[in-house]
Nucleic acid binder design. Structure first.
Lengths: 160, 160
DNA sequence: GCCATTTAGTCAATATGATTTACTATCATT
DNA sequence: AATGATAGTAAATCATATTGACTAAATGGC
């Protein structure tokens, strides 16, 4: 890295930095999936698949809407195409028959595994470069931002 | 935050965290601009305006293409609408008449100012929450990710 | 138990944004 | 001058998101 690069870097503003950093993960995951033949996953599909892979087996559609911050129609369409392409299956929640829950198919789980490995590879490379302490600090910062968003949403809910 | 939230948080994966964090800035900037009447800025427009506001006065289109990682056609269209809506002006680079450079109009500069203030407000709130040292560490991590991308691109360029 | 309200999601139409393919103009090299 | 590379445009198409109007199921008084 040249000196002028370093100077320019010092100026990069957080949102641009966050965007750019995200594309590093996104690009690596996308390339790994393409190589494995999973080349028909729509843009936001990575978040759905990645999100379903860990934690909850079944996720109500409403969570996707909230997490992705897209309209419920867009979420419905996204799930539609992921179902059509064999990554997800959808079923009615027996406890509340308005609700749909969504889970990974076998193909979906395979894609999630590849995606997870690609992500882990970036994580490892990053940790080797900057050390665990900086990563922990970075996660604290990112969580703080997320919580600021949650609080803002709660204030809105109260005032409306 | 409940305990189960904390537990769930620990699991959130970097790309999702980065995405979510970015939307905090994006949402705040968008709301501030809307309130000031600048409600016709397209999605990626925030990056163009924010990027032009600091550093270089004039930016060649090619930089936008590289930074946003969209096709040159998409970049051209994006600049088109920003010009039509009065945020940018475009002119031919006299040194290389194939090249177009782009700069903020007065209206564009005003929007950039509002956007910058909204961003600074989030920055300040964040710093108050987590402290300057964590922020510095987070920036180191994000820069490292960006550099990993630059290196990957250079490797591609060599091998192709 | 029944009606009003809220919540979860769908349908259809439209708008926005990005990509593909093909092209023109300018520049750099020999 | 001719060749190839670079910067951008044009037009068509595709993908994705939004809007507005709707249905079905659940919740909460009364």
């Amino acid at each position: 890295m040249s000196n002028s690069d370093a100077a320019r870097h010092r100026e990069i503003v957080m949102p641009a930095l966050l965007r750019h950093a995200r594309t590093i993960y996104g690009g690596a995951m996308r390339r790994a999936l393409d190589r494995a033949g999973f080349d028909d996953i729509p843009a936001n599909g990575l978040y759905v698949i990645g999100g379903l892979a860990l934690g909850a087996e079944e996720v109500p559609l409403a969570n996707l809407i909230r997490d992705l911050r897209i309209s419920k129609q867009a979420a419905g369409q996204l799930v539609d195409t992921l179902v059509m392409r064999g990554y997800l299956e959808r079923q009615v929640d027996p406890a509340d028959r308005r609700r749909l829950v969504v889970r990974l198919t076998e193909r979906g789980a395979e894609a999630a595994k590849i995606q997870g490995k690609a992500r882990d590879a970036i994580d490892a490379k990053l940790a080797a470069r900057v050390g665990a302490e900086d990563i922990a600090a970075a996660r604290r910062v990112l969580y703080a931002l997320v919580e600021m968003g949650i609080e803002a949403r709660e204030r809105e809910a109260v005032s409306s």
